[in-house]
Nucleic acid binder design. Sequence first.
DNA 1: CTAATTTGCTGTCCAAGACAGGTAAGCGAC
DNA 2: GTCGCTTACCTGTCTTGGACAGCAAATTAG
Lengths: 168, 168
Amino acid sequence: MDEGSIAPGAAAGGPISHTIFRLARIHSLLAGRLLREVGLHPSQELLLMALWDGGPRRQTDLGAELGTDSAGTTRIVQRLEEAGYVRRRPDPADRRATLVETTPAGAALREHVERIWTHLEELTVGDMTPAEQGSALAGLLRLERNVLATDPCQELGRRVGKRGLTRE
Amino acid sequence: MDEGSIAPGAAAGGPISHTIFRLARIHSLLAGRLLREVGLHPSQELLLMALWDGGPRRQTDLGAELGTDSAGTTRIVQRLEEAGYVRRRPDPADRRATLVETTPAGAALREHVERIWTHLEELTVGDMTPAEQGSALAGLLRLERNVLATDPCQELGRRVGKRGLTRE
DNA sequence: CTAATTTGCTGTCCAAGACAGGTAAGCGAC
DNA sequence: GTCGCTTACCTGTCTTGGACAGCAAATTAG
C-alpha cells in the first residue's frame, strides 16, 4: 500500500471518518477547479442548484438546506445577485421575508453547470460498474443519515461558544 | 424520503458527487464540534495526526499529504507551534528545509484526540453492521482513488489562474 | 565560479463559518 | 389599541483557509 495518502494508518482511530475527510477534500478541490470554468464557488453553485431544483424560496429555507447560517446565506445571495444570477423579491405573504429566485442569466447557466456536474460525476465514479456505483451511493446515503441523526443540523443555528485554536 | 436535505432530486446531475458534498459538510460540521473540545480546528488536527502517524517530516511533505499549498501549511504549523504542540527544527540534510515534529504537549493531546475520533466514528457508522461498514469504507476508498487518479493533487502546487465569483 | 531550481516564508486578496449585535415586520396577550 | 416576544434579514468583526506573487537562502547543474 502506501499509495499516496490513501489509508495512512493512524486512521485506525476512525477509518471511515478519516476517509470521508480525505475524499471530501480532494473531491471538493476537483469540483472547485471544474467550477471555476463558470466563475462560481462551490457554495454559490450549490445555492443556485437548490434554486433550480426547488424554485423560488426564502433565504431562511435556502440556508437551512445548505447548512449555512443566515449571515452566510445573505452574503452568498448578495454575490449571486450582484453577478446577476439571482434576484430578490419581497415575499407578498410575509413582508419580513425575501424570496430568492433565479434570473434568466442564472437559468442560462444551468446547462453549463450541469454539464460540469456530469463531468465531475464521471471522474468521481471512474470505471465503477453501475452496481458498484449504486452500492457506493447507498453507503454514502447511509452515512449521511447517521450523521444527520446526531443532529448537527438541528443545532445549526445555536450558539455553541468556544472557539478553536486562535491566533491569540 | 424527503427527509431533510437527503437526495434533493436535482442531484440527478451527479448523485454521488452531490452526496459527497452534503455528507462532507455535515460530517465536518460534526467533527469540528467534537474537536472544539481540544481547541483544534480540523486542519490543525489533521496535520497533528499526520505527524503522529508518520513522525517528523518536512513542511513540503506535510502540505502535499494534507492537500494544502506551502503558504497554508506554514500558517497551520505556525499556529500549532504557537500553541506549543509542534516544534520546527532545521533539516540537517538540507538546510533549506524544516522538519516539523510534535512536542510532548502535542503527544499528550494524542490520546484525547483519538478518543474524539473514535466517538466521531461511532456516530458516523451508527448502527451499521461491520459488513456494512466494510462495504461503505471500500466504496469511499474506491471513490478516493478515482478522484486522485484525476490528479487534483498532482496539480496542487500549480498556478491555475482565474478566480471564482468575486466581490464585484 | 555562475545560473537555475528548490524550499520555505511573508503578504495580499478572497470566500466562508461563527458570532454579536441591530432593524423591521409579524404575532399573541392583555 | 399597546406591550412584549419572535422571526427574517442584514451588518460588522474575527477567524480559518485557498490562491497567488514575491523573496531569501540553500542546493544543484553547468
